[in-house]
Design a protein around this nucleic acid. Structure first.
Lengths: 91, 91
DNA sequence: CCATAAGTACGACCGTCGTCAAACTTTGAT
DNA sequence: ATCAAAGTTTGACGACGGTCGTACTTATGG
């Protein structure tokens, strides 16, 4: 839980989770709308992965990211819902 | 939202919120089970207050703390519920 | 009036975190 | 074989946040 919150408190990482939640399929690392360098992006994906929020797999040179929503909903019911709500994203 | 998450990511502050949520009435600053000095405690209460999570008022020399659950539930539905759930506290 | 209790305010210290650039790896295409 | 695309790794830097001690304020009780 502590680890999950530490992952979600960063705006960039929360944006990644939000974009993943809104997408209808998995997303490559380079396809996110985040304004940081590649190395910083790699760092953020690592934090999200180690917190159990995403799963990653390769497709050619692209590393795909999948939101582990079911696992999260089981471990922390309501948390991702509370964060990906449209009004939550706005405020 | 960002401010609320930054307030809730600290274990001491989340413990304060949890204890407030479990209590059936408001709690004085000195009555919490937190292992930090007085000045550090004051700092944490200030962060919680500025994030809108608690309200404070004096009763003699004691400063009472009230959880603003209704305001939070309106602004960020499900967030406090997700964090104060017994299984959330455990994990 | 004085002492004690309950917090607050102010600096200071230190660790952690987000950030980047540069060098490297691996895969796929020409 | 070469080259480009996509990430990773490493190291460094700077800022912010949690912590504490000390000094200060305010209120209650004897």
């Amino acid at each position: 839980m502590q680890q999950v919150l530490e992952a979600l408190v960063d705006p960039v990482r929360r944006s990644i989770v939000t974009q993943l939640s809104a997408a209808d399929s998995d997303v490559a690392c380079g396809a996110f709308a985040i304004a940081v360098s590649k190395s910083t992006a790699t760092h953020h994906f690592k934090v999200l992965r180690e917190a159990g929020l995403i799963r990653q797999y390769y497709v050619g040179t692209a590393r795909m990211n999948a939101l582990r929503r079911a696992d999260m909903d089981e471990a922390f019911p309501g948390l991702l819902d509370a964060l990906t709500t449209p009004q939550a994203r706005q405020r």
